[in-house]
Amino acid sequence: MTQSTIESAQGSGVEGRTGRFGDRIFAGLSKGAGVLILVTLAGVALFLFREGYPGINVDPSEMDGSDTFIQYVGPLVFGTIFAALIALAIAAPLAIAVALFISHYAPRRVARTLGYLIDLLAAIPSVVFGIWGIRVLAPLLAQNVYPWLGDNASFIPLFSGSASTSGRTMLTAGMVLAVVILPIITAISREVFLQTPRLHEEASLALGATKWEMIRQAVIPYGRSGVISGAMLGLGRALGETMAVAIILSPSDGYFWSIITNQNSNTIASNIALKFPESSGLEVNRLIATGLVLFVITFGVNALARRVAAAGFSGADG
């Protein structure tokens, strides 16, 4: 069908043979590239499944730990989601506030520079965030915050247990993840806030709104879906983020609710990074299988993010 559209568009007879021949090659190349992307993605799912399946279906006694796959991956899934949610809880409000600061409060020239810096920060490798976290943030929190929380807030399950002295806790990991995803959420939110039609902002101001009332009345309703999908994309990134967690977290096997101790559920990605280089045989298959689980989780989150974004935009236009 595509081919015929092209030919009908081109079939005026003005061009010579070379034109038609060149067109066919060019169209074929570009279509091939598109199809290759589909094939690649199918390949990702297929190969992960092929290499992961032996790890899922394995007899627990063949592995050193005697867990079934579900028992093995359960705490990792918990840790992955837990860490990502902590990161999101910290990053989302800050990112939205910073986006508003840049889009509506900072002087315009300053705002442009800030926007540039935020974009740049989104590109800083996470391994760098990781070593910064373990070097600077972990000791800072371990000395100043965790002992206090352990002494005074241990009635809250999140802060129970003996406070870590190394700072290699779920909370530290979550905070570094928050720093990693902050630029992403900020960049998307800033973009949608800046797109608020001037007409709506002026309508609000002309009714006698203060700046904040104008933002609440015109900017936030307009940008809400964009911000939510930005936050979901940040969540997806946090779920899959590997190095920052692998470097910082001190992992244990099991489910742990406290976020200030040295006993933490590991995340899927970090577990792979820590174990894969030294693994062989079925162990590798099992790690790949956990990767497949991670793929499915992030796929779900990202699909949801796109649904939210799509729903929002048609609503704003209509």
Partner: peptide
């Protein structure tokens, strides 16, 4: 979908 693939999963693939 590809945009959202975690980098470690791309490595495993």
């Amino acid at each position: 979908v590809m945009t959202g693939i975690p980098s470690i999963v791309a490595g495993l693939f």
